[in-house]
Design a protein around this nucleic acid. Structure first.
Lengths: 214, 214
DNA sequence: ATGTTTGGATAGTGCCGTTATCCAATAAGG
DNA sequence: CCTTATTGGATAACGGCACTATCCAAACAT
């Protein structure tokens, strides 16, 4: 398969494919000679993966490169590969640790993890970007005066844990190690937009159910 | 309060505040004379809201303007205001309806809504941007060969419905109508990043629990 | 009175995903 | 073959976006 065909079958313009090749998101094709390179089904699959991460997962190109780098890194165990890939995902800007709201949020999220029993990798978890994002979001909500029950956060946490169990159960159904990691990463990158869409649909549904259209 | 103080108390540069004023994200201050305008606590709150939507919710400036426009629109009932605000949120690019994967995904998502009993606003729901996002995500996953059990999607849907129930229960605790809508919108914009962070933490936790660090 | 600060208008900056333009080498068609 | 079109690679250009910097005249502070 040559560039033009790869482009046709994926729906991505040749210019963009060239760009991805340059950026290292796509491995180069098998070079036949100076002006011909041959691509295969694996390239097509990779290209679709990249597109999905960018369009559905809204990841920046640089992040896709980083995430795929971790997925491809065979020197790490599964948990660490998954962790590394997840850590590369875009996060909220660094919070100001001197801010009182941020400090209070640290406190609250710490208690949350305690309550949920997510102490497994506590040391690790508290420096995880996801932890930081959570702290920033909690702080933002409290700064706006939304002073909600910590119990609510626990309920959300339990729900998302159930989702994670579903994710990882699904990962188990895939045979190869490489596929497992890729699947897990997709679980974060593509399943999250899905959960988000479901969340919004559920809100619309529940709102209509409760209040009609007034 | 003048611009400089608003800037100091919010941590946002005066240049950026001016930009938000220009973009209509912030109502103008009370004009004292040609070179002086007076801002109040409501401006500060609004500014924090805007910042949270941009930094935590990752919304583009234009989207924030649109969402806030709907929140402020007092001519609509609650469900419609919420719906309008949710519909303004950034979505996945328009899918190619001729694509076979997209068509299959429509089918599958339709069955999902049926199973979940979210037929309440079915006509509305199927043209909702969230519905479209869901279809695109499902299609992308299947295109990559992830051919998972429809039952899984149902489980995710039930989880997110539980989350939506929590959201709206919380909204009930707020007295005023305007606050209710704002709260509901924040439920989509700020709670979603929170859920996302919890999801990732839960994945890390569950992965470590199952496989250790190998 | 005079140096500083104010808000408003406008232009510029840096990043990022993508697209367009050239180019020489090579494949394809008659 | 010989022409014509296409290929991949390098480089530059583009358009959008979130800010940021520069000016300016009016008004405040001392």
């Amino acid at each position: 398969m040559r560039l033009a065909e790869l482009s046709r079958r994926s729906g991505v313009s040749t210019a963009t494919i060239k760009y991805y090749l340059r950026e290292g998101l796509l491995p180069p094709g098998r070079q036949v000679n100076t002006t011909t390179a041959e691509y295969d089904e694996e390239h097509l699959r990779r290209l679709r993966l990249v597109r999905a991460m960018i369009q559905v997962g809204r990841l920046p190109v640089a992040t896709v490169r980083e995430v795929l780098g971790h997925v491809d890194d065979e020197s790490l165990g599964r948990t660490l590969r998954l962790g590394a890939a997840l850590w590369a995902l875009p996060q909220v800007p660094e919070p100001d640790e001197d801010d009182e709201w941020i400090q209070a949020a640290h406190q609250r999220v710490g208690e949350l993890l305690q309550t949920l029993g997510w102490s497994n990798a506590k040391l690790l978890v508290t420096i995880s970007p996801a932890y930081r994002s959570l702290v920033v979001a909690v702080a933002a909500l409290r700064r706006l005066g939304y002073d909600w029950d910590p119990e609510m956060l626990v309920s959300y946490g339990k729900l998302m844990h159930q989702a994670a169990v579903l994710d990882l159960d699904f990962v188990e159904t895939h045979p190869s190690e490489a596929e497992k990691v890729e699947t897990a990463v997709l679980g974060a990158v593509l399943v999250e937009p899905m959960l988000q869409a479901l969340h919004r649909l559920a809100q619309e549904e529940e709102s209509a159910r409760r209040y009609g259209f007034e």
